[in-house]
Structures are given as C-alpha cells and as structure tokens.
C-alpha cells in the first residue's frame, strides 16, 4: 500500500511540473500567432500591411500579464477547457483533439502493440535458438530496419507501394468521398488506408523490440537459476518462457509503457507523409502556427499519458518482480 501511495504522490508532483512547463514552453518560442499566420500567407506572395490588424482582431491574441494568464490557464486545465485554436479558428481545441485522437489511437496504438508482441516473441526465439537462422535473420534484419529513419521508410513505401504499384491509397485515413460512420464499408476503407502508415511504423520499430528482448534474454539464460531449471529436467518451453522470458521482459516492458504513453502524441513524420489526420499532424500544425491553446492541450495530453503509462508500468513491475515492492 505504501508503495502505491508513494508512486501516486510522485505522479501528482510530476504532473504539476509538467503542466507548468507546458504553460511556459510555448511562450518562450519567438514570434506571435499573428506572425505565424502572416508567415503562412506570405508563402504565396507579399502580404498587405492591413492584413495583420484583421488577423489579430480575428484571433483575439492573449492579453494580460504572464501571471494572470497562468492562473487562468490552471483554472481552464482543471475544467479541461483549452479554448479555441488559432490555426483552425474558430474550432475549439477539444473538438480538434477529439477528432484526431481516434485515428492515432487505433492506427499507431495497434501497430505499437503488434510491434511489441511480435518483436518480443521473435527476440525470445532468437535468444533461445541463438546461432541458428532463427537468430541471425531477425537480429540482422532488426538491426537493419531499426536504422531506417521513419520519414525515409515512409517515402519509399508511399512511392513504390502507393504510386508505382498502386496497391494502396497514398493519403488520408479514409476515401475521398466517404464520411466517417460505423458501416462495414467504411471500416474496410479505413483499414485499407491504414496499411501503409502502419507498415512504416512496424518496419522501423519492430527491430528495437527484437534486439532488446534478445539481449536481455541471453543475459538471463546465463543465470544460475536457468541452468538449475534445465538441470532439473524441466521442459525447454517452460524454462524459456516461465524462467528466462519473465525476468528478461522487465526492461522491455518499461520501453513498451513509454511507447504506449507516446502513442497519443501520434507519429508526426508518418502522419505527415501519409496525410493522416491524427494527433501527430495536429501537433505539427500547432507548433508551426504558434497555436498556444492547441499546443498546450496536446503537450498536456502527451505528458499526462506518459506519466500514467509509467505509473501503470511501475505497478505492473510490482506484480512481475516482487523485489521492487520493497
């Protein structure tokens, strides 16, 4: 119980620090939202001097000193009211986040889980059968693919599988003429559009899980209690899974918790390349447009889910490894 309380207290303290930092960081960026809006217009040619006044009037750029803004911000956060976005004026930040979140959660979330499960299993297998092709293939392959940058893989995939072979649609989360609903046709449309981005994330992330799990596993396999279990004549499956893998998975689990927490941040580059309407793309828009309200909401969501994921992993640790409970 004390363990749980201590972890909870830490969670609250970190959350407050994160919320405050979250208020400060966007304001430390040079330039105002109006500057950003003009910058966007200016890419199409010189901007009329009168435009600036209209933009400032439209956006209602923040007033008051930093302290009163901070107090107001804390109040709004506690009510989960993040105001109106500058970039997508006059839409509210909550609507924007709620529209983007499901796409990211389903696509990136599922792929992260699949990559973790597949990677970890392959890692266990590679360590158990080390020296055979079951080891060399995933290990070498994993080293290779995990060195690919996200965007580069994404560009290759979209160019060859999308534009050249035309096997998959190249952008968006669903077809040009469909409107989100719960029909079977729409869901299959969504799955069709998720293939390429999912494949990209899978390719670039599965290698890390394989390597991590294999290395932990090899260490554990050298431990005395594993040798003892083998000497006792236990079945090799039991030794591999119940003795070695259960202990070896702990560091990987921390990593998994962090990646799950990071899922809500979306996959910025992949979403950019595939025009996927997820949180990553939203975050990109928020940052490039000095959209303080949107940025605050997204960073906050990201930090809170990161903290929660960590907290849950900590609890899980307690279950998996009794030593941490002390």
């Amino acid at each position: 119980m004390w363990y749980l309380l201590r972890k909870l207290g830490l969670l609250l303290l970190t959350a407050w620090a994160a919320i405050t930092l979250n208020f400060l960081l966007p304001r430390l960026m040079p330039g105002t939202p109006a500057d950003a809006a003009i910058a966007k217009l200016a890419q199409n040619g010189p901007v009329d001097p009168a435009t600036r006044a209209a933009i400032e009037a439209q956006l209602g750029v923040p007033t008051g000193d930093a302290w009163s803004q901070y107090v107001q911000y804390l109040g709004n956060v506690s009510r989960l009211d993040f105001g109106v976005s500058y970039t997508f004026f006059p839409q509210s930040v909550s609507t924007l986040v709620m529209n983007a979140l499901p796409w990211t959660l389903v696509m990136v979330g599922l792929v992260t889980i699949i990559a973790f499960v597949v990677g970890t299993l392959l890692g266990v297998l590679a360590a158990w059968k080390r020296g055979t092709w079951l080891d060399t293939l995933p290990t070498l392959g994993g080293t290779f693919t995990s060195a690919f940058p996200y965007f580069w893989t994404a560009l290759l995939v979209v160019f060859f599988l999308g534009y050249q072979l035309k096997w998959f649609p190249t952008s968006g989360a669903y077809g040009l003429e469909s409107t989100p609903n719960l029909s079977l046709a729409f869901i299959s449309d969504v799955i069709g559009h998720a293939w390429l981005p999912a494949l990209t994330i899978l390719i670039t992330s599965v290698g890390g899980w394989i390597l991590g799990m294999r290395n932990n596993m090899i260490n554990t396999l050298g431990d005395d209690y594993v040798t003892f279990a083998e000497a006792n004549g236990l079945r090799s499956r039991t030794v591999a899974v119940k003795y070695a893998a259960r202990n070896a998975i702990l560091p990987n689990l921390t990593g998994f918790g962090l990646s799950l927490g990071g899922v809500v941040g979306g996959s910025l580059l992949v979403e950019q390349v595939f025009n996927y309407p997820g949180v990553g793309y939203l975050l990109y828009n928020a940052v490039t447009n000095q959209d303080f309200p949107l940025m605050q909401a997204l960073f906050l969501m990201l930090t809170i889910s990161m903290l929660l994921a960590n907290f849950l992993v900590d609890l899980l640790y307690g279950l998996l490894d009794p030593r941490t409970r002390r």
Partner: peptide
C-alpha cells in the same frame, strides 16, 4: 534561419 513566425517578428 529562424522559424517563419520568429522571422516575421524579427523583420517587423
């Protein structure tokens, strides 16, 4: 090379 918004602020 500042970010576009910072560029506009500097220039203005």
């Amino acid at each position: 090379q500042p970010q576009p918004a910072a560029y506009f602020q500097a220039v203005q």
